[in-house]
Amino acid sequence: MKLLGPVEIRGLAESLGVRPTKKLGQNFVHDPNTVRRIVAAADLAADDVVLEVGPGLGSLTLALLPACAAVVAVEIDPVLAARLPATAAEHAPELADRLTVVQADAMKVTELPVAPTALVANLPYNVAVPVVLHLLAAVPTLRRVLVMVQAEVADRMAAGPGGRVYGVPSVKIAWYASAKRVATVPRAVFWPVPNVDSALVLLERRDTPDADREAVFAVVDAAFAQRRKTLRAALSGWAGSPAAAEAVLTAAGVDPGARGEQLAVGDFVRIAQRAHTGR
């Protein structure tokens, strides 16, 4: 099967009157070797059902079709969504029936026509983390996630406690999955060329903590709202006062003088649980 290259990508875009927009974070991959690398890194099984968000003109979609049982592509742009089945039929007629296209905002998706087991996508930079977190929450059948995101975002998603870029995305991703950055993707493989490099992040879902997610995430948000403050100070608004925050932290076995970036997801769970059960 011939994958889409620079000539095909630009030709498709021109025929559709599509001009990539910053608002939708559209940077189309036009390098066949890159999409092959993405599919290989996803390590898909023949019976996997892949959820692809933002398929755009279909570069990655075409590479995914032979590697799994089915692809559900969620595309917010109605013009691109309408064209994708025809692109699959033209370039991979024997596999086109594996593709289902859903024209929707991935941030609002709660039900899909089939239950996906893997998310593989080139995500718009501006919504990458919210989309991943939403889909991990909304689609419990997802076991593996491989996404291409801005390199800086990839580092945040995969960071561990104590790291320079460890923050809210790191902790919330860790609630659902283990994460690691697996490859860097040069900017030259995109059209238009972005002003930043990209990277692939692999997430493997694990059992979530036995705790109220919203309560834990509220602690996380408060802890990182003012990064330079100690947890005693940062959580004072959340707890009601610095003294109340200190009491909860002490009961949870966390140093009130520590900072949010020093805590793992399990620490935030204990803090939320102590606040719920009373100091």
Rank of each mutant, 00 (worst) to 15 (best):
G5I: 01
E8P: 03
L12Q: 11
L16Y: 08
P20V: 10
T21I: 01
T21G: 11
P32D: 10
P32G: 10
T34Q: 10
T34W: 00
V35M: 08
R36M: 07
A42H: 06
A46D: 13
D48I: 12
L51S: 13
P55T: 07
P66E: 08
A67R: 13
A70S: 15
A70T: 04
A81T: 11
R83Y: 07
E90A: 15
E90N: 02
E94H: 14
L95K: 02
L95H: 11
V101L: 06
A104K: 05
A106S: 11
K108H: 13
V109A: 08
P113A: 09
A115M: 11
P116C: 07
T117M: 04
A118P: 02
A121S: 15
V127M: 03
V127D: 01
V129A: 13
V132K: 05
L135E: 07
L142T: 03
R143W: 00
R144E: 09
V145H: 02
V147S: 04
M148I: 09
Q150I: 12
A151G: 12
E152T: 05
P161L: 10
P161K: 10
G162F: 05
G163M: 04
R164M: 03
Y166R: 10
V171F: 02
W175H: 09
S178V: 09
A179E: 03
R181E: 07
T184W: 00
A188M: 02
P192Y: 06
V196S: 05
A199S: 14
L200E: 04
V201W: 03
R205N: 08
D207A: 15
V216P: 05
A218Y: 02
V220C: 06
R228P: 05
K229F: 08
L231W: 06
L231Q: 10
L231G: 12
A233T: 15
A233Y: 01
A234W: 03
L235Q: 07
A239S: 11
G240S: 06
G240C: 08
G240K: 07
A244K: 14
E246R: 14
E246P: 03
L249Y: 01
D255G: 12
P256S: 09
P256H: 04
P256T: 12
P256L: 11
G257V: 01
G257Y: 00
A264H: 02
F268G: 04
V269Y: 04
R274F: 01
R274P: 02
A275V: 00
T277F: 00
